[in-house]
Amino acid sequence: MGGNPIQFDYTVVATVLSFLLLVWLLSKKAWGPLMKMMDERRDNIESMLTKAENERQQAEQIKREYQEEMRKARQEAQEVIAKATKVSEERAAEILAESHEEAEKIKKSALVDIERERDRAISEVKAQVADLSVLVAEKIIRQKLDMKGQGKLIEQFIQEVGDMQ
């Protein structure tokens, strides 16, 4: 005993049994649950990755729709502005035309007025001339004209007529 380190005995049996017991215990209590957890975690991560990918695609979709809508809205706004500009230009032209017409009308009526005023003035002058003529004739008759007084009278008359015009 002691010298030779290689001695077989029933320790082999005891060790085999002990080791198999350890294998059974650990497989049941440690490796099994542990590997199950690891698989679970892998599945979790996989599903999370898929979910994240889905959500990313959805976000992309929403972004695209949003951009499309923005583009549309901008286009519509552009159209509205263009329309408004056109309408206002038309209106302005209309207003301008109307005012031109108005001015023309006013001018015409003013001309008519002026014409009428002139006619009136002329006829008034004519009437006054007639009145004056009557007045002069009256004066002439009333004052018994001499030659000298006659010339003076004529001159006065002429001057009166000139003032009136």
Binding site: T11, T15, S18, L22, L26, K29, A30, P33
Partner: peptide, 24 residues
């Protein structure tokens, strides 16, 4: 039976069990 070997075997097993228990 080699007593020392078996005692040490069981000690090692106990250590492994403790180690794994802490892990799980």
């Amino acid at each position: 039976f080699h007593a020392k070997t078996l005692i040490m075997t069981w000690t090692a097993m106990a250590a492994i069990l403790l180690f794994c228990y802490l892990g799980v």
